[in-house]
Nucleic acid binder design. Sequence first.
DNA 1: CTTCATGTAACTACATATGTTACAATTTGA
DNA 2: TCAAATTGTAACATATGTAGTTACATGAAG
Lengths: 124, 124
Amino acid sequence: MTSEALGKCLGANPVVVRRTMGLLREAGLVSAERGHSGGWRISADLKTVNLRQLHAALGEPAIFAIGNRNETPECLVEQAVNAALDKAFLEAEALLLDRFADVTLADLAADFARRHAERRATRE
Amino acid sequence: MTSEALGKCLGANPVVVRRTMGLLREAGLVSAERGHSGGWRISADLKTVNLRQLHAALGEPAIFAIGNRNETPECLVEQAVNAALDKAFLEAEALLLDRFADVTLADLAADFARRHAERRATRE
DNA sequence: CTTCATGTAACTACATATGTTACAATTTGA
DNA sequence: TCAAATTGTAACATATGTAGTTACATGAAG
């Protein structure tokens, strides 16, 4: 699949697609071929690759939009708040990453197949 | 405590402090007085106010920095991915908000007191 | 050898959060 | 009564990060 086709599916720019897919390529999850009939191809086992690996391959982007204003504050009040928040955030992050690890590309493919069959059935 | 003093503690601008504290005032958690010897004052019971209420009072800012690119995609692959991610995010969000609800201002005050005593002991 | 792709650098555009300025409104105290 | 201190708020400026765009080099296929 070309970057242009992927971009259309995602509503994104082909160059942005290449940027992101490049990270997956560096992680060995996809390969790219140039030229005529080139494009992207999955080069990993759907059953073993999970969402947590994708998150890691994409550079482990920050999960939370909120968080400590200052990691090492002098203010003792802020330190107490940070400690309380850190505990909660660490637990939530661990849970989220565990859930990510539970979902493989094969699971997504199966869910896609189910949706595809359902759409065809609905159209009749 | 004045916005200026709070701003210094937080390393933030007094107007930004007023903006944020204003939300807490609307939620009835603090009150403000103008003029000489004015400033902010907590107007709620430390034992009953918890971090989840603060999150709500501040307008329930988005918790996650990552998430679906498009909530209602036509693409069935994207739909399958969204469904998998939504499940994981909802669980993690529920856990985080539960943990927030567990922490009261009184808990923070107690932790502050502990840190304060510890700092004094270390200085001797 | 032309066409179609990726690879990548450089730049632009946009959204969001924060900071800043300015000033009105209010309260206190001399 | 008046000056100083403080919040309330609008308007504008700045910074940051993400996505988009342009441009062009590189490589592969027919």
